[in-house]
Amino acid sequence: MDPFVVLVLCLSCLLLLSIWRQSSGRGKLPPGPTPLPVIGNILQIDIKDVSKSLTNLSKIYGPVFTLYFGLERMVVLHGYEVVKEALIDLGEEFSGRGHFPLAERANRGFGIVFSNGKRWKEIRRFSLMTLRNFGMGKRSIEDRVQEEARCLVEELRKTKASPCDPTFILGCAPCNVICSIIFQKRFDYKDQQFLNLMEKLNENIRIVSTPWIQICNNFPTIIDYFPGTHNKLLKNLAFMESDILEKVKEHQESMDINNPRDFIDCFLIKMEKEKQNQQSEFTIENLVITAADLLGAGTETTSTTLRYALLLLLKHPEVTAKVQEEIERVIGRNRSPCMQDRGHMPYTDAVVHEVQRYIDLIPTSLPHAVTCDVKFRNYLIPKGTTILTSLTSVLHDNKEFPNPEMFDPRHFLDEGGNFKKSNYFMPFSAGKRICVGEGLARMELFLFLTFILQNFNLKSLIDPKDLDTTPVVNGFASVPPFYQLCFIPV
């Protein structure tokens, strides 16, 4: 058959498939802009700032609406009420993970971030239990974070109060905490193996944040037939998995079943207990991918939040002064901060919360999916439909947070200066898919920041009023603009 005829037939089939998918069930789905064949609503979305586009569309179609990214149908949730109703009140029905062709290629359905069903539930339950087990290797997770915080302070001392970009050092600290939990080992910041790991993690975040990856996920045929950065992403992930597998083999040879040292040991012990169960989800494949998931999810998000926190503290020296006064009063100079201190430091706690609220790190979270046909607000959402959640619409709700575009710790303080919780605080998402490392991340943010401010004054290279804190939105995360500062020993 003539190649031209084959091409026309293929394009015609794709067009018909697109029209059929977009028209099927439209009477039951939430409203939304009319999609174009094949490309859907992509032309109506700013790929570099999806969150802003969703906010604009919500003003037209309401808090629940339908979009098509290519052939992929998505239902968008915008605003606290619908997000709570879906992710919390109907948590089980909305607990699936959205379709990610690239991740599915890399992870093969294993791990904790992109798995679904029984596998996801069992691996998540085990990971939560293990991360909360403060007795691994007779050292609590808090001990590990405190140790890394001391190392971080010593690295900052080496800058000798000269101007520096904190990106690298602030990236090393949370990565080392995860390494300590998974591998029972922290690395020197100049260790070549550690630097290679950091390089792969950072490069992957840069790649994932590009519009090209959005295109690959919406048109998965590209993955096999086109060159691009997605190939580098898959190569980096394969490198990390190979490295983790080597460490798993080392653990198998040296493990003491009665004295687990780290996450890998705990997983291997669980595998041993379930070795007679042919349906067990505790396999080497799941261990390797879960460890890679924890490394990827637990490094860049925390380091970016820390980097943004220091920029905001530079911009608002009056806030920094209040935090340091609270540190001096509650902790002093002669001991290290600990998590028990947080309950006695409402202002510092409010500042950490406000940093996370203000920066809105992951504006749309990772997409969910419905696990069955769901009736939601008089609409029928078919099983498997991807759910896109606007966390921006919750964290920047102007009824809950007056002047949401302003950095103001009073958003989390009552009139008496006591810490005030808010149900709208969802930087880790909400419901059954809430970030498994939430507790660890909150511990790291509090301890790293208090250790830094206990030991250093922060000095800006320019007038604080002239510092730009506008986030650089890159399609996946909101990151701070480049800046330098000086760490002046107190």
Score class of each variant (00 low, 15 high):
167 T>Y: 15
28 K>R: 15
321 A>Q: 14
209 S>M: 13
209 S>Q: 14
149 A>R: 00
284 I>D: 04
113 V>N: 09
177 V>I: 09
230 H>C: 08
63 P>E: 13
68 Y>H: 14
328 E>R: 15
179 C>T: 08
324 Q>P: 00
323 V>D: 00
271 M>N: 03
76 V>G: 03
333 R>N: 14
136 M>P: 14
135 G>H: 12
317 P>M: 06
425 F>G: 03
392 T>I: 01
450 T>R: 04
240 M>G: 04
379 Y>E: 00
340 Q>H: 13
458 L>P: 08
433 R>E: 02
144 R>C: 10
80 Y>G: 04
204 N>I: 09
482 F>L: 12
179 C>S: 09
95 S>G: 12
269 I>E: 09
407 F>R: 00
265 D>N: 00
97 R>Q: 06
365 S>Q: 02
434 I>M: 15
306 L>W: 01
430 A>Q: 09
263 F>S: 00
388 L>K: 03
274 E>Y: 08
312 L>V: 07
99 H>Q: 13
64 V>G: 01
355 V>D: 01
34 T>A: 11
27 G>I: 15
404 P>H: 06
82 V>K: 01
297 A>W: 13
211 P>I: 10
162 S>I: 09
311 L>G: 04
404 P>V: 06
419 F>I: 09
373 D>G: 05
162 S>E: 15
326 E>R: 01
353 H>W: 03
437 G>T: 03
15 L>F: 06
127 S>F: 13
413 L>Q: 05
370 V>P: 05
20 W>S: 08
2 D>K: 10
202 N>G: 07
140 S>R: 07
96 G>L: 08
65 F>P: 02
78 H>V: 13
323 V>I: 12
120 W>T: 04
398 N>G: 14
370 V>K: 00
302 T>G: 06
376 F>A: 01
95 S>C: 07
107 N>D: 05
397 D>F: 02
16 L>W: 09
164 C>T: 14
29 L>G: 07
421 K>I: 12
285 E>V: 05
169 I>V: 13
190 K>D: 10
304 T>Q: 14
478 S>R: 13
328 E>A: 13
41 N>I: 00
290 T>N: 02
262 D>C: 10
119 R>C: 07
293 D>M: 04
195 L>S: 13
75 V>A: 03
423 N>I: 09
41 N>L: 00
364 T>W: 15
332 G>S: 07
330 V>W: 07
432 K>C: 10
474 N>R: 13
384 G>Y: 05
276 Q>A: 14
270 K>S: 07
12 S>P: 09
176 N>D: 05
346 P>V: 05
37 P>N: 01
29 L>K: 05
400 E>N: 06
99 H>C: 12
97 R>E: 04
324 Q>H: 09
223 I>T: 11
308 Y>V: 04
327 I>D: 00
149 A>S: 06
356 Q>S: 09
219 F>A: 06
364 T>Y: 15
121 K>T: 12
267 F>I: 01
488 I>P: 05
61 Y>V: 00
90 L>F: 14
250 E>I: 08
306 L>Y: 01
237 L>N: 03
54 L>I: 13
264 I>K: 01
252 Q>L: 10
366 L>Y: 10
309 A>V: 05
325 E>G: 11
379 Y>H: 07
294 L>E: 01
73 R>N: 06
440 L>Q: 00
427 P>H: 02
222 I>F: 15
163 P>H: 07
382 P>L: 04
53 S>A: 04
43 L>F: 13
111 G>L: 02
144 R>P: 06
164 C>W: 05
415 E>P: 08
346 P>R: 04
433 R>C: 04
77 L>P: 00
205 I>Y: 09
245 L>R: 13
223 I>R: 08
426 M>A: 04
157 R>E: 12
247 K>C: 11
120 W>V: 03
389 T>V: 14
58 S>K: 06
40 G>H: 01
156 L>F: 10
322 K>H: 07
192 Q>L: 09
208 V>P: 07
133 N>E: 14
310 L>P: 00
193 Q>T: 10
64 V>C: 11
314 L>N: 05
409 P>M: 03
250 E>Y: 08
169 I>D: 03
177 V>W: 00
34 T>W: 13
449 L>K: 04
100 F>G: 08
205 I>D: 09
253 E>F: 14
382 P>M: 03
68 Y>T: 12
255 M>I: 14
204 N>C: 06
372 C>K: 15
93 E>W: 11
479 V>T: 14
98 G>E: 04
168 F>W: 13
459 K>A: 10
319 V>C: 10
459 K>P: 02
67 L>D: 01
423 N>V: 12
64 V>P: 01
456 F>G: 02
259 N>Q: 09
335 R>Q: 06
249 K>P: 03
302 T>Y: 01
20 W>P: 05
275 K>L: 08
294 L>A: 02
13 C>K: 01
465 K>L: 12
280 S>D: 08
255 M>E: 01
242 S>G: 12
48 K>Y: 15
260 P>W: 02
155 E>Q: 11
105 R>W: 06
105 R>A: 08
129 M>D: 15
328 E>N: 14
288 V>T: 09
43 L>E: 04
11 L>G: 09
235 K>H: 10
97 R>F: 03
320 T>D: 04
41 N>T: 07
485 L>T: 10
58 S>Y: 06
364 T>C: 14
395 L>T: 04
438 E>S: 09
257 I>D: 10
314 L>F: 05
268 L>V: 05
413 L>A: 02
250 E>H: 08
59 K>A: 11
180 S>D: 12
5 V>D: 08
355 V>H: 00
245 L>G: 09
167 T>H: 13
28 K>L: 12
15 L>W: 13
61 Y>P: 00
344 H>E: 15
396 H>W: 15
339 M>V: 15
256 D>L: 06
137 G>A: 12
35 P>A: 10
360 D>R: 04
68 Y>M: 08
41 N>G: 01
374 V>G: 00
195 L>A: 14
118 K>S: 13
337 P>Y: 01
108 R>D: 05
77 L>S: 00
387 I>S: 00
187 F>P: 02
179 C>I: 09
361 L>C: 10
331 I>N: 00
400 E>T: 07
357 R>E: 00
13 C>P: 08
226 F>M: 15
232 K>Y: 07
41 N>Q: 00
429 S>D: 02
406 M>N: 13
339 M>P: 11
33 P>Y: 00
160 K>C: 09
271 M>H: 08
354 E>Q: 02
219 F>H: 09
163 P>Q: 10
449 L>A: 04
121 K>V: 09
437 G>H: 02
101 P>G: 12
254 S>W: 06
66 T>M: 05
99 H>P: 13
207 I>P: 05
440 L>V: 14
370 V>G: 01
310 L>E: 00
406 M>E: 14
203 E>W: 06
424 Y>D: 02
116 N>S: 11
108 R>P: 04
150 R>I: 11
